[in-house]
Simulated assay, not measured.
Amino acid sequence: MNLDRRQRRNTNGRPSQATFWVRRVVALLILAILVALVVFVVRFAWAWMQAADDTQQRAQAEQTTKELVTQPTTCDMNNIAYKLQPEKAENQVGSPVNFKIVLRNTKGDQPCTMNGASDKVGVKIVTGQDTVWQSWKCQGSAQEQPLLLGTAVEYNSTLTWDGKVRNGCDKGDLAQAGTYQAIPVLNDKEITEAKAVFTLK
């Protein structure tokens, strides 16, 4: 009778020692999992924010570098290649002679600006020791012509000589048959190494 009462008390009363420890272990495991989950979420969020911040900083640095690299400067005339080519190697006496002008920035990784007005970019024509024509002379005030020369960018233009000899600012007689040299002139500097030869017949 007493044994039955003790068994009923054990059944209806507090849980057994084994059950108590099992529950405690389960609770601790759940708590550990929750803590680990919180730590993982916090670390993930921190890493994501750090990565986003690094990406933004890199983008800003690249943009700044790009702006520094591509910001145009004033052209150094030593870095400007001037190519001059007569439209025809042989021309008729009394006919206009056209010259193709090409300006190129030899430092193409750094865009630059220059004045391409007719009093800055010109052609001088000579035969023997005689100067026949200078394109920038007697034109009055030339309007400024800003040019932007960048990577793989060339400026193309055409100058035309009317085929007459200039004596000062007065038009003279027609230039005679013979061999002539066209010398590029950039900012009053003759570029003799880029001169071109043509003839009048």
Rank of each mutant, 00 (worst) to 15 (best):
Lys107Tyr: 10
Leu84Met: 01
Lys100Cys: 04
Gln57Arg: 02
Ile191Cys: 08
Gln63Val: 02
Asn156Ser: 15
Gln71Gly: 09
Pro15Ser: 08
Leu200Val: 01
Trp161Glu: 01
Pro111Met: 05
Asp130Pro: 15
Pro184Leu: 00
Arg166Ala: 11
Ala177His: 00
Gly178Gln: 03
Asn98His: 11
Arg8Ile: 11
Phe44Ile: 02
Gln7Asp: 11
Phe20Trp: 12
Gly122Asn: 05
Arg14Tyr: 02
Leu148Lys: 09
Thr19Trp: 15
Val97His: 04
Lys171Asn: 14
Val42Asp: 02
Val22Leu: 14
Ile80Leu: 05
Val69His: 08
Thr179Asp: 10
Phe40Met: 12
Gln60Arg: 03
Asp54Met: 14
Val132Leu: 10
Ala36Thr: 06
Ala142Gln: 14
Gln176Phe: 10
Phe44Met: 05
Ser95His: 13
Asn115Ala: 03
Gly172Asp: 02
Lys120Trp: 12
Thr192Ile: 15
Leu37Gln: 15
Lys195Ser: 11
Ile33Cys: 03
Val38Ala: 15
Thr73His: 10
Ala177Gln: 02
Ala27Met: 04
Gly13Asn: 02
Tyr155Lys: 04
Gly140Met: 07
Gln17Ser: 09
Arg43Met: 00
Ile101Trp: 08
Val97Glu: 08
Thr151Arg: 11
Arg9Cys: 10
Leu68Glu: 05
Leu68Phe: 12
Phe40Val: 15
Pro15Gln: 04
Ile33Ser: 09
Gly140Arg: 06
Thr11Pro: 04
Ile101Gln: 09
Val38Phe: 07
Pro184Trp: 04
Leu3Tyr: 11
Asn98Ile: 05
Phe198Tyr: 02
Ser95Trp: 13
Val69Ala: 08
Gln139Trp: 11
Tyr155Gly: 08
Thr19Asn: 11
Gly150Ser: 11
Thr127Trp: 15
Pro111Gly: 03
Arg166Phe: 06
Pro111Phe: 02
Asp162Glu: 12
Leu149Ile: 00
Arg166Thr: 07
Leu148Met: 05
Phe20Arg: 15
Thr11Lys: 07
Ala194Phe: 02
Lys107Asp: 07
Ile33Arg: 04
Glu193Ile: 04
Thr192Lys: 14
Thr113His: 03
Lys189Arg: 15
Ala52Ile: 07
Leu103His: 07
Leu174Met: 03
Leu147Arg: 07
Leu147Gly: 11
Gly150Met: 05
Ala152Trp: 06
Gly178Ser: 06
Lys195Ala: 03
Phe198Pro: 05
Lys124Pro: 03
